[in-house]
Nucleic acid binder design. Sequence first.
DNA 1: CGCGCTCTTGACTAGGGTCAAGTGCAGTGG
DNA 2: CCACTGCACTTGACCCTAGTCAAGAGCGCG
Lengths: 227, 227
Amino acid sequence: MLAALQGPRVKMSKGQEIVYEGQSQHAAYLLHEGWVCSYKLLQDGRRQTIDIQIPGDFLGLRSVLLRTSDHSFVTLTDVEVSRIRTQTIWETFRSAPNLALALLWAASRDEAIVVEHLVSIGRRDPFSRTAHFLLELGARMKLVGYGTASGYECPLSQSVLADALGITAIHLNRVLRQLREANLLVFRKGRVTFLDKGKLVELTGFDPDYLDWDKPVFTSGSAWKSG
Amino acid sequence: MLAALQGPRVKMSKGQEIVYEGQSQHAAYLLHEGWVCSYKLLQDGRRQTIDIQIPGDFLGLRSVLLRTSDHSFVTLTDVEVSRIRTQTIWETFRSAPNLALALLWAASRDEAIVVEHLVSIGRRDPFSRTAHFLLELGARMKLVGYGTASGYECPLSQSVLADALGITAIHLNRVLRQLREANLLVFRKGRVTFLDKGKLVELTGFDPDYLDWDKPVFTSGSAWKSG
DNA sequence: CGCGCTCTTGACTAGGGTCAAGTGCAGTGG
DNA sequence: CCACTGCACTTGACCCTAGTCAAGAGCGCG
């Protein structure tokens, strides 16, 4: 079903912008391969990463509703995306409401992730914030079939990760060392390895519920089903 | 149009929970009078405020898509809300697509606000973060007809505001003093007064675009219009 | 009058930012 | 094959910001 929405697959190399902040008339994208990050820039050039997108995630779904996108995307690795035209999405709402709901569900999930990051940055210290974020990414990777319970490939540089966590790259480095020396997790050579997942979960209060609810709208007898 | 969606207006007093985190089968609400805040709790009892809701805002729109709500709401003042049943929302998507799009638009705007808070907490220092937040609230108040360019009634306690900003109430107090002594703004006795809005905007890089886009879907000839 | 809020201020401390130097490694070119 | 360059990562030293602890002021309310 999803296939009908998409344009052809396009390859992009590492370091490319996908949707410029403030750009109008853009589309949404579905990410098939590789990693992307969404971020905003401040006037002084400092950057805040909003979220990391991994294969299976949508890019810019929300901004379809707006005339302009309010943040930008960069590819963190070589990627493969397919474009979804705004027009197509609106048509989908009429012709395939269930599919449209799946899109809404995806958008909701994205927002739940952003909210979780907000809580992390606002109220968790850098140590558990880092651990929480890497646990979250691990859970997301596992949901789309990459990685295992004990680790996953993670092509993030420390400075990108630091921007996501709201700390400096230097301090992130120190935090990663602490995590390593506490035998909790190792992040090295593009790979995250969990050494003591139970303790990490306990320490951070990580609860993956917000990442994989059963899609409620399909299971709770909504008006759409009969439509 | 919106009236058809709503149940009867209900009054609630200050300090009441509206949607419990983790609660199932809840509805969304429209806030008519008073202020509400959405927040999440950590295990240790610390709190992160996600956003403040003012009259005209929806509560829990997003969580309609999910089986459970991922955060809670408390009333900050006496309020008046009306309930919007989940079922009714789905029906609206078929019967009044334009109205449904307005709901999506509201949800998108809410997310844009959350993203802006994320950027603030992650990369702005407490001083400009506080200023930015109070500017944003002022712009939102003005959009719904409360307050003026020079100030607005703001019934937030310092501890609630501090939770929203990701700093301690004590430090917020110091920041507010700095803002006062710099002749930028005064927050006292439930009222925010801007003394030098130009300088505040310059200092924080505040750009209200994300609060009041022209609703794009209604103006850009979407498939919905013809439907 | 006294209790319990929220707000205010000061003194102290530690966590995390900044600056600076250095390591390791992949890619390039002689 | 080995210098050279550039980038990401490490580590140390220093300092400042914001958290913590503690005490007190102002005020509404029973």
